[in-house]
Design a binder for these strands. Structure first.
Lengths: 232, 232
DNA sequence: CGCGACACTTGACAATCATCAAGTGAGAAA
DNA sequence: TTTCTCACTTGATGATTGTCAAGTGTCGCG
């Protein structure tokens, strides 16, 4: 691991309050690697050898069953995955692959667990992170069970709009087929859903989104902080 | 809180390794209450005043949006809910109501957070619990996104069969309409799904389930530990 | 420049699922 | 016992969603 990588991850919530000594122990055995697109980093069912931290690029978490596959989440810099498996030393529940060229830190799971056992501040930071992860997945479940696919798309667009700082024009950060899978629908139905939102002031051309009638879209989407607010 | 309630919760993973002193601080302000059926204990969006522990009976966690409602989980003795909201001091994402007459311990959230700050063993136990919760919800999401409703029912029956110690006859622990909602379908479609599983050796009469052809059912359901194993 | 690859779109059709309405049956209460 | 309630079931219908096949367009490469 190069010295210049350290200041990138030290300020993460997960590591911010650790002692210098424990932080050094944690990263001593770690290394940074650059992966090309579409490389599988972890496979569901495997034992967690490393805690991963995405420094640049993006990583898709996905799951498979019976020849079907679904996109569960996209991890963007700078954040970790998959912490829960590492801490519990239980098999990965999701596979991970790079979407694009990505720089990733790999920290040996054994070191993470060892430092977790003796650094109390780190242990509390892990709690905070896991609680956040847990709440995120609960929101995703509510989204899936309580909304139709068009409603999910509408709310996804509103979340993207907020993430873009309130801009009415922004780019989709996911390929459409990945977005479709994440939203729990087929690419064909995503196309149709996009058309269905046109009367509510949504224009999508390629990856470019333009919201021409925010009020109409919000009235249709009925966003709720208890589903769509990723911060709390 | 009566002295005889204490040995019930002390052995919980969450409290087992705490010092006597911190445990006493934790439960000092707590109290036990018996609720009749169908009482709402928490409402999504509210701030978490108490950490709840179910001693007897059962509690349904559910979520609502736009006049729709869905069952998210059923909490059975002896376990806690909703820990993540309490620790993060963030609003509940789910509402909770008793399914039947239930005895429940209420521990003030402030006390939980205070002890969490100073008891390192408790903090680690919280990590373990949250990691488990997180992984459970990930499995539930995979179940929802990767399987059809009939497949979800088939695998639910196999899980119940395992929970019943491998018995081929057992009772449904949920009312059917609650089960339908939990599985992400309507009561009507649950009825039809039950009929659809008859050719695979499933007989359901009222709440009584009889599996007459386990091999056929398993071949249809294709259970996976990465979705259906609630222990890891 | 033309070609091929590939993501995306569109239309037709089928499967799945929800809704509405009516009916059954078991248990509680009079 | 009789009646009422209520969960559950069943059938008919419509909405939603998935599948298959064919098309469009863009982009990179020879």
């Amino acid at each position: 691991m190069r010295p210049e990588d350290i200041p990138e991850i030290r300020p993460l919530d997960l590591f911010r309050n650790m002692s210098e000594e424990n932080f050094n122990d944690l990263i001593r055995g770690g290394y940074v690697q650059t992966f090309p697109p579409q490389v599988v980093l972890t496979t569901e069912g495997d034992q967690p050898d490393f805690l991963h931290i995405v420094l640049s690029g993006s990583v898709e978490l996905f799951a498979s069953w019976n020849d079907r596959e679904t996109s569960m989440a996209t991890v963007r810099p700078i954040s970790t995955f998959i912490l829960a498996a590492t801490i519990r030393d239980a098999p990965y529940l999701m596979s991970a692959r790079t979407c694009e060229k990505s720089r990733i830190i790999l920290l040996p799971s054994m070191d993470v667990r060892a430092v977790f056992e003796r650094d109390n501040d780190f242990a509390r930071a892990v709690v905070s992170e896991l609680a956040q992860c847990y709440r995120s997945v609960v929101k995703i479940s509510k989204n899936l069970k309580l909304r139709t696919s068009i409603e999910r798309l509408a709310n996804y667009l509103l979340r993207s709009h907020r993430r873009a700082g309130g801009a009415l024009e922004f780019d989709l950060l996911l390929e459409k087929r990945r977005l479709a899978s994440f939203l729990g629908m087929t690419p064909e139905n995503l196309s149709r859903a996009i058309k269905a939102l046109r009367p509510y002031g949504v224009e999508i051309d390629g990856a470019q989104v333009r919201i021409t009638n925010l009020a109409d879209l919000e009235q249709f989407a009925r966003p709720s902080p208890l589903i769509d607010d990723y911060s709390t």
